[in-house]
Amino acid sequence: MILSLVLLGLVLLTAGVLVLAPLGAAQSSDPDAERRTALEHERDRLYTELSALNPDDPRDEARRPDLERRAALTLRALDALAPAPRLARSTGPRRSALAGVLLAALLTVAGAVTFIPRWQLKALDAGEAQDVLAVLNLPRLRAEAERTQANAAYMAWGKAAFDSGTYDQALTAYGNALKLEPRQPEALRRLGILLLTSEERTARKLSTEDATQAALLIRTAAQLAPKDPESQLLLGFAYARFGEDDAALDALERYRTLNPKGRDADEMITAIRARQNTSDPALRLYAASCASCHGPAGAGGLGPSLRASTLSRAALRQVIAQGKGAMPAYPNLSGTQLNGLLDLIGRWQKEGS
């Protein structure tokens, strides 16, 4: 932080010098500038007084000879001065000043791009700060990867590009990394999901062959790294894309188990459960209100497993209606809705985990 402030201060100081130095040079290029300015002001003042004289006023006419004499002396004094370096003053220094302004602007912009975002990182959450840094680092990481053509450099470039949403660069980087080492789960699953979702980004229809290839990449990554949360998350998204809802729920539940704080699967799980539960009002209600915490099938997630619960029906009714701990209250459920939920949880308790 201190180093950034010092460097930005130097940038601003340099900008000021670049702008003011040519202007100072312009002022000092005419040794008679001060005398010339005073005489010009006196000349203009006398001309103003002469033009204001009233020819019909005897007093004004009495003043005219003296004013004309003084104006003539002023003009003679101006003529006696060395010619003013008008060309040098009007072109050279101004051109230099303009160049200074442009260079100062470039330095200021460069300083802002380089330093200011790093100050602003303090106001961002961890994920947003990481994305900003990824964008700032992209040119350097890309140059390093293209220079060394090393697997680690391509992976670093690919990760920064993917995390910052620069997907065209991520495709290139991960593609080159897989050419060097084909069994890299991160590159496989991210390349697969980018290929699978390319239709949304490019408006180009995804071919069956490309879709199959994308699914293969994602499944291979999950097999190589089954305990990696992102492997299971992207696998779940891929299964859902192909309409395999049961397999998608299994993968997304594994993701939630591996990353209990992760919320990326919540909407997908809820949408799948809603599709599956169109014929059962209790399941629809559970999917909309409970599945994000207790899991799509009651097996637990952020909240405890309902299948492993030993609470009585009366105790469950009280918890649902009044809430408990992190569990919010649902006091506005109708009797039919509440009884439907209790029947569902009762069935799960009998089935067990």
Rank of each mutant, 00 (worst) to 15 (best):
A247G: 04
A248T: 08
D250C: 11
D250A: 15
A251T: 03
A251H: 04
L252F: 07
L252A: 06
R254E: 14
R254N: 14
R256K: 15
R256D: 09
R256H: 05
R256L: 08
R256E: 15
T257M: 10
T257S: 14
T257R: 06
L258M: 13
P260Q: 06
K261C: 03
K261M: 10
K261S: 13
K261F: 06
G262K: 08
G262W: 11
G262E: 04
D264R: 15
D264V: 09
A265G: 12
D266I: 04
D266Q: 08
E267W: 12
M268A: 05
M268D: 12
I269C: 03
A271Y: 07
A271C: 10
A271L: 11
I272V: 13
R273G: 10
A274I: 15
A274M: 11
A274Y: 13
R275G: 07
Q276E: 14
Q276V: 05
Q276H: 02
Q276W: 11
N277F: 09
N277E: 09
T278H: 06
T278Y: 08
S279P: 13
A282E: 12
L283W: 13
L283R: 04
L283A: 15
L285H: 06
L285V: 13
A287Q: 01
S289G: 09
S289H: 12
C290I: 13
A291Y: 00
S292V: 11
S292C: 03
S292T: 15
S292H: 14
C293L: 05
C293Y: 13
C293P: 05
H294R: 01
H294P: 01
H294G: 00
G295D: 02
A297N: 12
G298H: 00
G298Q: 00
G300K: 01
G301K: 02
L302S: 06
L302R: 04
L302Q: 07
G303M: 06
G303W: 00
S309D: 08
S309A: 15
L311D: 07
S312M: 06
S312E: 07
R313C: 02
R313G: 05
R313L: 11
A314V: 11
A315N: 10
I320G: 00
A321C: 02
A321Y: 04
Q322M: 08
K324R: 07
A326W: 05
P328H: 10
A329S: 13
A329L: 01
A329Q: 05
A329G: 04
P331M: 03
N332H: 06
S334A: 05
G335R: 15
T336R: 14
L338W: 00
N339I: 03
N339Q: 08
N339M: 00
G340K: 00
L341F: 03
